[in-house]
Design a protein around this nucleic acid. Structure first.
Length: 597
RNA sequence: CGGGGCGUAGCUCAGUCCGGUUAGAGCGCUGGCUUCGGGAGCCAGAGGUCGCAGGUUCGACUCCUGUCGCCCCGACCA
């Protein structure tokens, strides 16, 4: 029985001071979540119902994709994480502690180590493969700055899946099947999302895609091609060519640029385009060598002046080049360099040159001397053992699509899902091997696949909310139907109760082990009831009030479209079923648009 | 980790600069009456060790020191 008169719901009229973005404000106001401490939240009945409905969708799709559900512990021994080297790499984001016996532990930020340990324990033969395991479980990541409510919280629940196979083909197959499952999951949430090529970050591996919900408040930036559909995270987007520029200064010459330091200042002073200035940035890069020692090295990165350096690309390039782990990089802060006048000619150290510099005939570099720059430099002038050409620039709108040449669009979004082809990165280190048909012992080939469950809920709100509150499709709405009893007269309440009984029998939802219908029987004014139903995002609202007294009809309102119908109480169940079927059809259509079939 | 801001009733905030009786408002809450289609009205009421700990002072919500918590920005292009 969900009668609001005795339900646990305390909605707020005003925006809480602590919230910045719409989804966070609404989740707090609708009493879906409650903050206990920075980045740590309780889920309350309304919020937990939404969560449970989404969780059930995820579980259903994972099972349909052939994955097996398990549950792994939150607390892990340090030894496992030391074996993969991630005890250090994960750094302060991992919550570490020591138990009463002095054993070092961590609260798991992810589960590659544990699940690979499991596979190492159990898998022996090629006959045992392939399989995919998943769990919906709590994680802890001690984020630098938790933000936006449950969108970036420290403790959070993630669906994480791990595939194990004996060949690249089997990995590809598992990867594609997760891709399709994710497509179905986010389609069933009625989300507008894009799948983009992504960087693999701390998890590691080769191929990777992110599922990004388009929203202006998102923390991810993506570029996508309006013609061929190619899309990538700007951190990752491989750029092959740039719009070619012609330089104003073609003569090689040292010139006085005085106080001009930034690219913009120098370009203004020389009355030319910023793209003609080479932007030189020096990083202090911390490496971890094979024998576990940390050391720093200064590396210069040079991009065309209209570009920005992409640190992740720099990091990935360096770790591949040296075959060592890059722990991180910072801007170099030493006093010995003439900042604003530094350049790749005569710099003592490794120099990374971005391909964008090849798309201008001549450019201007810092002279490594206070107040001076050198004009008329060609890409060919930068030669030597310490020079490395590569892709180090961040993609942005207007860039050339590497697949078809069209100008790219840029958008912001929220990363709700991420899939990786891990390969043998973890299985090798943790001894997860199998004996193949040829009698040889080989490492298992792995993939991993994650969804932020609460983040997905927040992103639905973020993308759909209006001035009245949350909007959900019935698939994840806290209540598919809300019967609002305005207590117009004695008879009307009986009709409302009756409607509620009929609907809840029909709309019992096994996902939440409860009926999916709400009865607002509170002694409140009509405005309060309408406002609360809208705030929570009740998908279909049946109002029993004035029109019932006048004409014996109730009003059916569709939250998403605002559409209102006056119908007799007998028609309500059929009409709602009709709306739901219609919505399901459009969701089906979205599912069918998946590029993988 | 650096910078900024905030902490006063359940919530949103005044008051603090310039120390001085019983610390305020709106919303919410309790009781009563009226009302009943988009956050109703009137009346009566409850609710606060002013984040915490020290200090200065005849006197501290107010000034000083420390501490805890929360939020925002930055930690990236010289």
């Amino acid at each position: 029985m969900v009668k609001l008169s005795n339900y646990f719901l305390f909605t707020k009229r005003e925006d809480p001071a602590e919230a910045e973005v719409i989804s966070h404000k609404l989740m707090l106001r609708a009493n879906m979540i409650k903050k206990l401490s920075s980045g740590i939240y309780l889920f309350l009945p309304v919020g937990w119902r939404i969560f449970k409905k989404l969780e059930a969708i995820i579980r259903e799709e994972m099972n349909k994709a052939g994955a097996f559900e398990i549950y792994m512990p939150a607390v892990h021994p340090a030894t496992l994480w030391r074996q993969t080297g991630r005890w250090d790499i994960y750094g302060n984001e991992m919550l570490k502690f020591t138990d009463r016996n002095g054993r070092e532990c961590c609260f798991g930020p992810t589960h590659e180590e544990v699940v690979t340990w499991l596979a190492a324990q159990e898998v022996k033969s090629w006959r045992d493969l392939p399989f995919t395991l998943y769990q919906i479980q709590v994680k802890f990541r001690d984020e630098i700055r938790p933000r936006f409510g449950v969108m970036r919280s420290r403790e959070f629940i993630m669906k994480d899946a791990y595939s194990f196979g004996k060949s690249q083909d089997e990995l590809n197959e598992a990867y594609d099947s997760m891709y399709k499952a994710y497509w179905r999951i986010f389609s069933r949430c009625d989300l507008d999302f894009k799948v983009v090529e992504a960087d693999t970050g701390a998890i590691g591996g080769a191929d990777s895609h992110e599922f990004i919900v388009l929203a202006n408040t998102g923390e991810s930036k993506i570029v996508y091609c309006p013609r061929c559909g190619w899309a990538a995270n700007t951190e990752r987007a491989e750029l092959k060519e740039f719009k070619f520029k012609k330089a104003k200064y073609t003569e090689k010459k040292e010139i006085n640029t005085g106080e001009a330091k930034t690219v913009e200042e120098v370009a203004k002073k020389l009355e030319t385009d910023p793209s003609e200035i080479a932007k030189s940035v020096v990083f202090t890069v911390t490496f971890k060598s094979k024998n576990g020692e940390f050391y720093d090295e200064n590396v210069m990165c040079v991009v065309r002046g209209d570009r920005e350096v992409n640190e992740i690309k720099v990091q990935n390039f360096l770790s591949k080049l040296k075959d060592e782990t890059v722990m991180g990089l910072k801007m170099y802060t030493g006093e010995d360099l003439p900042f604003g006048n530094i350049g790749p000619l005569g710099f003592d150290g490794m120099i990374l040159l971005d391909n964008s510099l090849k798309f201008i005939d001549y450019f201007i570099v810092g002279a490594n001397k206070e107040g001076y720059h050198i004009t008329g430099i060609k890409a060919g002038d930068l030669k030597g053992d310490n020079y490395h050409w590569g892709d180090f620039a961040e993609a942005k709108a207007g860039d050339v699509c590497p697949k078809c040449g069209e100008a790219l669009n840029e958008s912001r979004g929220i990363e709700v899902g991420h899939i990786f082809k891990l390969g043998i990165k973890y299985s090798e280190k943790l001894g997860a091997t199998f004996v193949d048909k040829d009698g040889k012992e080989k490492p298992i080939i792995m993939g991993c696949y994650g969804i932020g469950v609460a983040r997905t809920v927040a992103s639905i709100i973020e993308q759909k909310a209006d001035k009245f509150g949350c909007i959900f499709p019935h698939t994840v709405s806290p209540f598919t139907v809300g019967v609002i009893d305005l207590k117009a007269n004695n008879e009307s309440s009986a009709v409302a109760l009756n409607l509620y009984q009929n609907l809840k029998a029909k709309l019992f939802n096994p996902a939440i082990l409860a009926e999916d219908v709400l009865l607002d029987d509170r002694d409140e004014s009509p405005g309060v009831k309408f406002a609360d139903a809208d705030l929570m995002g009740v998908a279909y609202q049946v109002v029993v009030g004035r029109s019932f007294v006048k004409e014996g009809k109730v009003e059916l309102k569709v939250r998403e479209t605002g559409e209102r119908l006056k119908i007799s109480p007998e028609e309500v169940v059929d009409k709602i079923t009709e709306f739901i079927n219609h919505k399901n059809k459009s969701i089906e259509e979205r599912i069918r648009s998946c590029p993988l079939t």
